[in-house]
Write a protein that binds this DNA or RNA. Structure first.
Lengths: 74, 74
DNA sequence: ATATCGCACAACGGATACGTTGTATTGAAG
DNA sequence: CTTCAATACAACGTATCCGTTGTGCGATAT
């Protein structure tokens, strides 16, 4: 699977979960000490986030990283 | 959970799986177009690998990233 | 003794992530 | 119409990743 597709997919999944939780990009960003633009780039698949970054996102969304990845295959 | 602990844990888990598969650091590295030192730093928890990097590692180990993360909690 | 293999650590450089600022668009609210 | 919230994109600087080279150390074998 191509790199860009992987990044797009996980970005989209993060967006879905964020919206399910009723959060804006800005709110999620501030929950984990980042800013809105960072979340935007992540959701758009424009960056290749680090493991720690993904853990922080999962934390802000109040789910586990496993949950996020599990939902990718579904 | 602290960043260093997270990196150490996933590094150790990757090492366990690599050894289960009977691979050396060098062999795993070459399977995915990297070098032995990169694997060493990853396993030692000295780097914060990107999502794509983790996908490549999982690929080289012939498991899914989900498998690796699943075994972290166990 | 020396060669080889697996693993560890340090340093350098190019590439990239990510925080920040600035700006544009869209839609809802007043 | 104006205002504000939410999202998107671009550019810049700093920090970090990761590939690479070189070095070392222990274990095993010849």
């Amino acid at each position: 699977m191509k790199k860009e597709e992987l990044l797009k997919k996980i970005g989209e999944q993060i967006r879905v979960i964020r919206i399910e939780k009723g959060l804006t990009q800005k709110q999620l960003a501030h929950l984990i000490g980042k800013d809105q633009q960072s979340i935007q780039r992540l959701e758009a698949g424009n960056i290749n986030p680090s493991y720690i970054y993904l853990c922080e996102i999962a934390n802000g969304l109040n789910v586990s990283l496993l949950d996020i990845l599990n939902r990718l295959s579904a």
